[in-house]
Amino acid sequence: MDRPIRVLIAKPGLDGHDRGAKVIARALRDAGMEVIYTGIQQTPQMIVEAALQEDVDVIGLSILSGAHMTLLPRLMELLRDHGMHDVLVVAGGIISDDDARILKEQHGIAEVYGPGAPTHEIVRFIQERCETRT
């Protein structure tokens, strides 16, 4: 595929912890991806609408507020409603292992990363998953 991978980085919920989101945005940019950054305090509706308009391959969600078990399943449901099954969704922030497992197994989040996750691993995961896109 000669077209750059397009990623939306968004922060659902009300917290203002935006360092992680910015670190990830920069790492993906440095890996040659086009990263749309929409800032803090996004509702699931806003995120899905932006992802649709931007026709992204990947949505990256950064959430450190503790509200991930309500916001992320809602967002996945909206994606399905819009027929956007092919979009890869990854998340990061303060999410317990138990919650991460549920988000992956029951809600279709592809991977969850916590504090200290090496950015090169995140880059590699996204690149590998996007190799087969059309």
């Binding site: 750059p4 920069r26 890996a31 040659g32 800032g39 806003m46 609408e49 932006a50």
Partner: peptide, 29 residues
Amino acid sequence: TSPFTRGAILGDRIRMQTLSGDPGVFIRS
């Protein structure tokens, strides 16, 4: 676009959030 990595950070939407949810608007970075 960064001339070195071919990547880019597209941040203009941050200032356009008030238009969100309006079907009469379409924004593309």
